[in-house]
Design a protein around this nucleic acid. Structure first.
Lengths: 204, 204
DNA sequence: GAATATAATAAACACTGTTTAGTAAATGCA
DNA sequence: TGCATTTACTAAACAGTGTTTATTATATTC
């Protein structure tokens, strides 16, 4: 019964086709302008066909959200070789911010939008998020073990670090950094300076 | 020509009626479920009438956004009497977080959603935001003058503080704090503990 | 009282996500 | 090979959305 396998393969190919089209559209025009009908038009199928492969629009964007986490994870784990955990933490932080500034739509989907989280409610666990957060936890754990940062509860420290960098990026991508009344380049410089200051305050 | 004045008054009353209905609906059911048709139904006018008083849906939510800032401003300025600027900063921070946790929909509109910012692009200035941020700047300025916090650029420090508390609240309201796998009450405690730690790290 | 200006609306436009009922093609079995 | 069944797909509809236009009813001015 090789037919069943081929069918399974074809099903997966169709899912990939939809995801590819949706991702391209999403990165080009944003979430709101990426409609099921637009995707259907692009892949030359009827809108109803998409619902044979995905439960709803949220499920499509949950897959894109997972792919985005794969990209971020790879970027962050590039720094795994850095021996000094504090240096590693610094590199992770800067890469996280850089990712957010350069991929505002991905960042939105991963950490701001409600859409992919609706999906997670049904799946019990936010796997992608846990993976990245776990990496932060181990790095901070190393910092604490080597007394590189001020001693405190690991989770409280992790939330402090993540909240800060997320705050920087999310205020920027949702255009609240306009209060600084600076050009885009200058605003980004303030963000990185602020991160530098934060790291200094974190040190023992 | 007292008629013109009455007409102007009636126009303002109608605007207030729409805003009141929209606000009640928004706080009860959120942004997405607050449609122009629902508001029209509620105030017993046709949907088209609303467009005689507001340019579009965004303009309605810009007004609600401004009202929300009035509420937050009043809450934050309650601490104006605290003499020690560091104590004042601490109180401001905790009140900001409390406001976000207790009014997630308002917080959304003020600091996360795109809708009200679309309006601001046409108005040149984010008045409400500048007012609150200005209050943070003066408080931090006092802290620096009295050498209560580590010396650094005022704006960079302000962005650091705001980004951190915004990160805490926005990750919470957009349900990303689920990575902690804690009950709601415990999660909130971690947020406040994290703020305490942040303030410690900020001190000289 | 007639002419004009204002206020309100019904209906339409162009969308959206999603479901249902029906068709055409591929597959399983005799 | 021929027929029944399953699978893949879609046209059309449903119930919404924000917004605009043409029309009617009311109020104001002259």
């Amino acid at each position: 019964m090789a037919i069943k396998e081929r069918k399974e393969r074809e099903k997966q190919e169709m899912r990939n086709l939809i995801i590819e089209s949706a991702t391209a559209m999403f990165l080009k025009q944003g979430y709101d302008k990426t409609s099921i009908r637009n995707i259907a038009d692009d892949i030359e199928y009827s809108p109803a066909t998409i619902y044979l492969y995905f439960k709803d629009k949220d499920e499509i964007f949950y897959v894109i959200h997972e792919n985005a986490f794969d990209i971020l994870d790879k970027l962050l784990r590039q720094h795994e070789a850095i021996a000094d955990p504090l240096e590693r933490l610094d590199a992770i932080g800067r890469t996280y911010i850089k990712f957010g500034l350069e991929n505002p739509d991905y960042y939105d989907l991963m950490f701001i939008m409600r859409a992919p989280m609706e999906q997670i409610k049904n799946e019990e666990k936010w796997k992608a998020g846990e993976c990245a957060f776990g990496y932060l936890l181990t790095t901070l754990s190393d910092c604490l073990a080597q007394d590189k940062i001020r001693q405190n509860d690991l989770h409280v420290t992790a939330i402090q670090v993540w909240s800060f960098v997320h705050g920087l990026v999310s205020l920027y991508v949702r255009e609240r950094m306009c209060i600084l009344m600076l050009e885009d380049d200058a605003t980004r410089e303030v963000l990185y300076s602020s991160f530098t200051l934060f790291m200094q305050n974190l040190k023992t």
